[in-house]
């Protein structure tokens, strides 16, 4: 069953009874909420995602709800909590949905230490994956969104989830959050992309979420092997540059970019070493999204296998 098999009334009931249990890649996430405005958003933006049996064990139990007590009445806020703790200050009620999305990412990044987690977008074609490790603001999500509407499968716009047993990348094809100018850039690049409502004046500016192609969500249990490491950086008016980089540099950049390299110790060293050995490593500087997508397409077609 998927979310789009549920009516709005059912979603509201599931949320209120902590039974809204969705599969996001390798994680089952149970969400409780009493915020009615979340219902149409989840119905629209999560409609391809599987709803998991209620008696299954969830990885994360998340709550996004009105604050308790008087504050509920005089100040309309949304409080994100997990396991009884509130890791963030309350959000304006209008920002409950982006708060939920950020909160889920935060929970994964701070808890899923059975996997090596890279701060990276990941896309796949013909069984070979590209990782785009990058710091915030380097254009990772925008590039990722453009690629998944250009024939690549989305594994993630945020997490390179590496399975320690075999080094493959596990998909977690969540919504792609776009910020500020990137929203219109993607609207123009791929008019067919379904983008949710814009949330203005959030803690990260204006945010809107792209629904990944249905195929990417449908194939969320198909891992992929890393084949290319491309370190992207969007620079206004910069000419396109896609250049090989030394593997020592790539190793350093991947290791320092991981969410939990230190936590996994020797396992992380081995996984990053193997990944860098197996991948061709490039630095990408771009300002024009079309040029970047074309360059990546040419690189991966000419250097495939």
């Amino acid at each position: 069953m998927r979310v789009n098999d549920c009516t709005a009334v059912q979603i509201k009931r599931l949320l209120k009874s902590s039974e809204f249990n969705v599969q996001l890649g390798p994680f089952q996430i149970r969400i409780f909420s009493n915020i009615a405005s979340l219902v149409p958003l989840l119905s629209q933006l999560y409609h391809f995602y599987p709803v998991v049996r209620q008696d299954s064990i969830s990885d994360l139990h998340i709550k996004i709800a009105y604050p308790r007590g008087l504050r509920h009445w005089y100040r309309r806020q949304a409080v994100f909590s997990i396991d009884g703790g509130q890791p963030f200050a309350p959000y304006a009620i209008e920002h409950a949905f982006p708060a939920l999305e950020w909160g889920i990412n935060w929970c994964i990044a701070t808890r899923a230490h059975h996997l090596l987690m890279l701060h990276s977008a990941v896309v796949e074609r013909n069984g070979h994956a590209i990782l785009f490790p990058a710091w915030p603001g380097h254009g990772k999500s925008t590039l990722c969104a453009a690629l998944v509407f250009s024939g690549w499968r989305l594994l993630s716009d945020e997490f390179g989830l590496v399975r320690p047993e075999d080094g493959v990348l596990l998909p977690i094809p969540r919504l792609i959050p776009l910020k500020n100018e990137s929203i219109d850039v993607i609207r123009q690049f791929c008019p067919e992309a379904v983008i949710g409502p814009s949330f203005f004046k959030t803690r990260k500016g204006t945010v809107a979420h792209v629904i990944p192609p249905e195929d990417s969500i449908h194939r969320m249990d198909e891992p992929a092997k890393p084949r290319w490491l491309i370190f992207p950086r969007w620079v206004a008016n910069a000419p396109l540059s896609l250049e090989p980089i030394p593997k020592s540099q790539a190793f350093l950049m991947v290791a320092t970019n991981a969410f939990n390299y230190e936590v996994l110790d020797q396992t992380a060293f081995r996984l990053v070493t193997d990944m860098v050995k197996d991948c061709d490593c490039y630095s990408l500087v771009y300002s024009d999204l079309n040029q970047a997508v074309t360059a990546i397409d040419e690189l991966t077609r000419s250097n495939h296998g």
Partner: peptide, 10 residues
């Protein structure tokens, strides 16, 4: 644990 990359060692 050693890994040689180019002219650097990790």
């Amino acid at each position: 644990l050693w890994q040689k990359w180019d002219d650097a060692f990790v």
